[in-house]
Design a protein around this nucleic acid. Sequence first.
DNA 1: ATAATTTGCGCAAACGTTTGCATAATTCAA
DNA 2: TTGAATTATGCAAACGTTTGCGCAAATTAT
Lengths: 351, 351
Amino acid sequence: MQTFILYMPNKENNSNKINIRDIAEKTGLSISTVSRVLNNKAKEYRIGKKSQEKIRKVARELNYVPNQFAANLKSGKSNTIALIVPSLNNPFFAEISSRINTEIRKHGYITIIGESDENPEIEKKELRQLVSRNIEGLIIVPCGNQWEHIDEIHNQGIPVVCIDRYFIDLDIPFVSTDNYKGAYMAAKYFIENGHHNIVCIQGVQESNTNKLRIEGFKEAMKESGINDFNIIGDNFTFQNGYLSTQLLLKQKNRPTAIFALSNTIAMGCMKAIKEAKLDIPENISLITFDDHPYLDFLATPLSCVVQPVEDISKVAVELLYTKLYDEEQNTSKILLKPTIKIRNSVKRLMD
Amino acid sequence: MQTFILYMPNKENNSNKINIRDIAEKTGLSISTVSRVLNNKAKEYRIGKKSQEKIRKVARELNYVPNQFAANLKSGKSNTIALIVPSLNNPFFAEISSRINTEIRKHGYITIIGESDENPEIEKKELRQLVSRNIEGLIIVPCGNQWEHIDEIHNQGIPVVCIDRYFIDLDIPFVSTDNYKGAYMAAKYFIENGHHNIVCIQGVQESNTNKLRIEGFKEAMKESGINDFNIIGDNFTFQNGYLSTQLLLKQKNRPTAIFALSNTIAMGCMKAIKEAKLDIPENISLITFDDHPYLDFLATPLSCVVQPVEDISKVAVELLYTKLYDEEQNTSKILLKPTIKIRNSVKRLMD
DNA sequence: ATAATTTGCGCAAACGTTTGCATAATTCAA
DNA sequence: TTGAATTATGCAAACGTTTGCGCAAATTAT
């Protein structure tokens, strides 16, 4: 029985992806040489000028795109950084993500952004996913108080940087705003303007940023001899701001000022205040945490504590890179100074 | 000369990453078997129950995480979808990104988000980067009018879906809002409320969404016999809104209504109007394109054209997956209906 | 002319998977 | 009892790179 061997017509068109071998064949050089040239290791390995040019030319002509998966498998380098934030739908985290994303690309790396949706279980799942992609670094806004899975990454020798929220006891570097100071400044500002009856509407109590803000708030109160302040609420949501404020407004002894620990909370406050036919700052004063362009255009432009978002992002990436390159056991814990932006939502009381 | 062979002490601790071979050794089974079990191909390959259990148990104990790079290299599947948007710092795109990101993860894929910053060159660079990561699909909000690099991806057989902006002549599927209709509705609403002197402040003129909005606006005007309308501006920025409005307010024949083609433009308008000590809607009416929670809390709650962001995201992912799985040459071009949300920024004129 | 050095490059073994094709063991049929 | 069918598993070749080592040719030194 005779056997016919079938030749695949134009085999190289079989898969249109050009690889290093195709270039080697076209140039008559070896794949080693091609690899070295294309990785800019030509001088290191003393590849001749003409060979270099030939290789680069052919690579360009064939529109060669290296296969990162193969490269990573061999080299162990994934050129990938993971970023996990609670949600991109929150402008604060969206801005951070955007800045970190572009910053990281400058270094030739790529970012994979995961969202935890404030759910520790999702956070863990994301992290597993990302680890399987051999991430070389992790920047994370942890949600919740669970740190084991994050510490594990850290212990595997993968550089980790926490931003915004952090674990003070762990030796994982972080960069955040001095939340204590920010809240302190806001409270002081109220007091300087003659307010004594001040209420703070907080977010998630377990969150360490929330805790610190509360502490800063309390400290300012105590320093000024005000012992009769109030802290209510339990969530960084619109609902919480809305309901908490409704309750406040019904009180016999209505506060003269509200300190909302987030924009979402502040929006809830505004709605309740508006519905009660009251005015900011005439009837009640308001300061919020975090700035946003729209605050300028509100019925009453809102004064706020502003976090140095740009610096946080920059420093986070820098921190990551010193760990990545220098291998130094850098466990910097950095708190950046907030500022307070005065608009028009606090009334000056003179009694 | 005698040679001493040095044995590396506890070799398995050399790199703490557990791989499939470690599991094979511990279980006494082959790496093939381990691979198949861990990929849920056990029945297909008829792996015995006890072997399956043993493998899964050991994998769990050792905290095995598969190396996606190796898996992809072999299988050609990267489980990665690329998403390119102009900027995460724009709430509209941030929301889309967030939704697409979570939607895609439900399918076991991962998203890499790139930002073009409205710069076609950056867009191209991003795309190259992403292609080298063997992306299996691309969802993109193209910036600019260059489509060659996108079409090339498409021609390589990689499913591509455009969202928001698109190329009508290409056979690349897209999903967007019916921008024409949205603008038409807004204009009609002005007219129904007695406005005749209406100005539209547009964004980037080359952008096809901008073009369509302009057409819808014009159509409504013409239908109502208004031939004396005005279209100014050239950018989706605060500055553009601000400066354009300043000019408008200086005119002898001040318009009674402004249609801003984006939130950023609208914010600029508001600033100029406020500075001129004028009131919305008393002195001038305003409608903006795109909704946002904060619009409720502005000095005057802004009426707007709202795009079905959630549906856009969902449909985009669905489109991508039908192409990914069914291979059908699906080139759906989908326009979703916008709605108009009436707040309080348009005055009823009765003359 | 020979040895030493430098220059230019290729061989082949990884990296951790997946998978087509065996093969071995068991069960079943006749 | 023997062959066929079924069940359970392993071998080894890929996938596209990177890189240590080595070798030949060209150059320089002696």
